[in-house]
Design a protein around this nucleic acid. Structure first.
Lengths: 225, 225
DNA sequence: GGCGCGCCTTGACCTAAGTCAAACGAATCT
DNA sequence: AGATTCGTTTGACTTAGGTCAAGGCGCGCC
């Protein structure tokens, strides 16, 4: 297991393991390891017995099936920060797709049998998993609504309000990531984010000092979102 | 239980119950009922013991919390076709939000204890639930990527290719819903969908006859998506 | 200090897609 | 058959937001 602490944080952020207690997480890690694939290398084939599931640290994995015409149909491209083959794990049986590395790729490889044993032996953990997955799904659905229904400016405002701490002491927010990352999360270009913030600032609705944003008029912002 | 057959289909389409066998589904339904709320009526309050979860047939439910300032913070608006309070069910304990009907609303009300009993007593069902939820999440994530990364035209093409049956006999697709619904699913206006199809037709890539679409050049389309 | 390097901002421009409005066709009703 | 309605298509126009290119600013490095 040559996972550095960054990798571990990254892995913990993935939805599947977020519900685990530290002890459970350690437990899972103990039965996992890291694997590096070369470009084009095959991880598993469609029909192989389903024995492990995976988390991408870097690189890209192609999941595909072969049509009888010989044509390959790409089902998914899995990029860093995502699990794959967990659904197959829960179903058991065999992998329904082929998995190839498209470039040099680092994976966390986790053992199905061990993970399922943990889940099965612990009804409480199972419920937590179902719960976090439900929550995550509601979030994703909201994000889709947000992307299709709201304008870029509205999404920025919504994001600011969302970041606002519960106990509304001082209405200011701090970007915990470079702005171009925030922009990408909101589905806009960094230039657009910059312009939106500039416009809000010119209307006195916010003040910007580096990554610190002060919301001067939460009410007005809420009306706009 | 005054659910008509349309309601039942609708409910079955919701992600949570999609994994259930017909027998299990009947079983769950047997312990559910339909409730109608008047506009403004409260379904449950934050802190109430969590005893049921819900599916919206029509109307809108507002989920909100109260900040100590007395301000209410709307966490979600649940519209027809969605479950809510299932995450709370899996966690157990109490509802973390208030739920009010914003307008006249019909709900399916399902019993937590009974549903959880079913899940707990049936490890296999539990795994199927986890599996379908994983799959659904991958779909949602892909939809988000699609919305942010691809143009409207690309999404239309992607949708057409997605609809293409596996066994590539005749490369034609049929819209199983009115076009404005398809458009909305793709996050564009009906006019735009119409225009995209017109353009593809003018390039000889497809033929449109009502809701039947013939893909003349699957390869070229794939290159464009 | 001067220099180079990322990151952010700003401006000018352009294109995709939304809006509004009109016309069309198919299906239903009288 | 004629009228009405609903879904779709098409055209003209507008606009949000992407792209490209040019500065500005903070920061570490030599």
């Amino acid at each position: 297991m040559n996972l550095d602490s960054g990798d571990i944080e990254y892995l913990k952020g993935g939805y599947l393991l977020a519900a685990l207690s530290p002890a459970e997480f350690e437990e899972v890690l103990a039965h996992g390891n890291v694997r590096t694939l070369t470009p084009g290398e095959c991880l598993f084939d469609q029909g192989d017995p389903c024995t492990h599931f995976f988390f991408v640290l870097s690189g890209v994995i192609k999941l595909c099936r072969m049509a009888q015409s010989g044509e390959e149909k790409v089902m998914d491209l899995v990029r860093p920060g995502s699990f794959f083959a967990e659904a197959a794990m829960f179903m058991g049986g065999r992998y329904p797709v082929h998995a190839y590395a498209l470039e040099a790729t680092r994976l966390v490889v986790l053992d199905n049998r061990h993970f399922l044993g943990l889940v099965r032996s612990n009804g409480d953990l199972c419920m937590r998993l179902l719960s976090t997955m439900s929550q995550r799904m509601h979030c994703l659905i909201n994000e889709i609504k947000n992307l299709t229904l709201n304008s870029g400016a509205q999404r920025v405002i919504g994001y600011l309000l969302e970041q606002l701490p519960e106990g509304d002491a001082a209405p200011n927010v701090r970007f915990r990531a470079p702005k171009h990352v925030i922009a990408s999360r909101l589905g806009i270009q960094p230039e657009t984010l910059s312009r939106v913030l500039a416009k809000l600032r010119s209307r006195q609705l916010i003040d910007v000092h580096g990554d610190q944003i002060v919301l001067n008029d939460v009410e007005a912002l809420r009306r706009l979102s």
